[in-house]
């Protein structure tokens, strides 16, 4: 392998210095290495910020952190589709590789966007378990393997924003909180202690921007890099909110 003359990788990057500026595309060429990922290509640009025309370029801003697809930071549009730059190998892509920032979040610079809204959404749906305190209360509840296995799937959500990016009902016109936060409600509601605040979370989901804004395009479940069964969570909570809605109406 090492005897081969290294090929080049061409990248076309959507540049934008700040949210007010107009975006433009800039091409870069970096050396190719076997099994290299998009992050490695971006790192090459850091070390040599010269564009394809040989001009010195302002260094490209992009997010990354864990580089092993558990932190969610490096999510971006790669050849038009949402992916993590760390787990996307150059070999799988047609060139020039087009990199653009996520389109459903506010831009910071170049490929960096602000995803705070996702954390705000988690707050809206009360995605936490209300324990009495951190003092010693003895062992926690007994939980079956089956319940744990289902909950584990949901607990892998790294708030990367892929599901929001692909959801046609998440956009600047709508208030939809998106699938990620909804699945977290199911996770919290499936825990024996968390279930005690089940109603409060369902009520939150029935509010503005909540679960009813889902239009069943089901892109989320296809795009989720962690294979979280998002549409199953949504459907289960559809049922739970239906029941809750009837209760709200009939039990008064």
């Amino acid at each position: 392998m090492s005897n081969e003359t290294p090929k080049e990788v061409a990248l076309l990057i959507k540049r934008c210095p700040n949210p007010q500026a107009t975006a433009y595309w800039e091409e870069f060429k970096v050396p190719y290495y076997p099994k290299m990922n998009v992050v490695s290509a971006l790192m090459e640009i850091q070390k040599n910020p010269i564009n394809a025309r040989g001009e010195s370029a302002t260094p490209v801003a992009w997010d990354c952190n864990c580089l092993e697809e558990v932190c969610g930071a490096c999510t971006m549009l790669i050849n038009g589709r949402v992916r993590q730059a760390c787990s996307t190998l150059v070999d799988m892509l047609s060139q020039p590789i087009r990199l653009a920032p996520l389109s459903k979040f506010s831009l910071v610079r170049d490929l960096v966007v602000d995803r705070q809204v996702m954390f705000t959404n988690l707050r809206k749906v009360k995605a936490w378990i209300e324990i009495d305190g951190t003092y010693d209360m003895g062992p926690g509840p007994n939980i079956s393997q089956k319940v744990q296995e289902q909950a584990y799937e949901l607990s892998k959500c790294m708030t990367c924003g892929s599901c929001l990016e692909v959801c046609p009902n998440v956009n600047s016109k709508s208030k939809f909180i998106g699938p990620a936060a909804i699945a977290q409600v199911e996770l919290m509601n499936s825990h024996p202690i968390g279930a005690q605040q089940k109603e409060a979370r369902l009520q939150a989901l029935m509010g503005e921007g909540g679960i009813a804004e889902c239009g069943n395009a089901q892109n989320c479940v296809k795009a989720c890099p962690k294979n979280i069964p998002l549409t199953r969570s949504i459907a289960r909570l559809n049922r739970a909110t239906t029941v809750q809605g009837l209760k709200n109406w009939l039990n008064r």
Binding site: I131, M137, I143, Q145, Q148, A151, L187
Partner: peptide, 14 residues
């Protein structure tokens, strides 16, 4: 035990 109460999805015995 505390983390378990907080909802960490620890693997379980049968």
């Amino acid at each position: 035990y505390l983390m378990d109460r907080m909802g960490v999805t620890f693997n379980r015995t049968p």
